[in-house]
């Protein structure tokens, strides 16, 4: 019988699955769904312009009525909300006028003073505005 000299050190095969697991678990590039929460629940109530961490850039106060969802809920979930609505509109043909990105701009008049400021602060780069129109 020919003896086969071991090429790999045994521990290599113990570490391999671990390495593969690590590679799989490497965090995905930040996408809108992974936005971390700004501030604790204690300090984020009302408009973000009034309350927020000290270095949070002031966000423009929206004009008009209440948001389609409570502001606190929106702050936490708007990305999933918009993404869900996007998929429903594109793939299922379900269009809810109030819940569209277009409708956001009726109150949040400026992308730069509202969306971009916070996105820049939390270092996310959603690419909605590459194609979709929104007032500057």
């Amino acid at each position: 019988m020919v003896s086969y000299p071991s090429l790999f050190h045994r521990s290599f095969f113990r570490v391999l699955p671990l390495l593969m697991g690590l590679v799989l678990a490497i965090p995905q590039p930040a996408s809108a769904g992974d936005v971390p929460q700004q501030g604790g629940s204690g300090r984020s109530s009302g408009h973000p312009a009034h309350n927020g961490p000290a270095d949070h850039p002031p966000l423009e106060v929206p004009e008009g009525r209440e948001c389609v969802q409570p502001a606190e809920w929106m702050r936490r979930n708007h990305m999933d909300f918009l993404k869900h609505n996007r998929d429903m509109a594109v793939r299922e043909g379900v269009r809810v006028k109030d819940d569209s990105l277009k409708n956001c701009s009726t109150c949040h008049k400026s992308r730069e003073k509202f969306c971009d400021r916070c996105h820049a602060y939390v270092a996310v780069a959603p690419n909605c505005f590459e194609c979709h129109d929104y007032p500057k």
Binding site: Q69, W73, E92, G93, V94, R95, V96, K97, D99
Partner: peptide, 12 residues
């Protein structure tokens, strides 16, 4: 539950 009362809505 909050999503339950949409405004104007159209569906394919």
């Amino acid at each position: 539950s909050l999503l339950a009362a949409p405004g104007e809505r159209t569906e394919a």
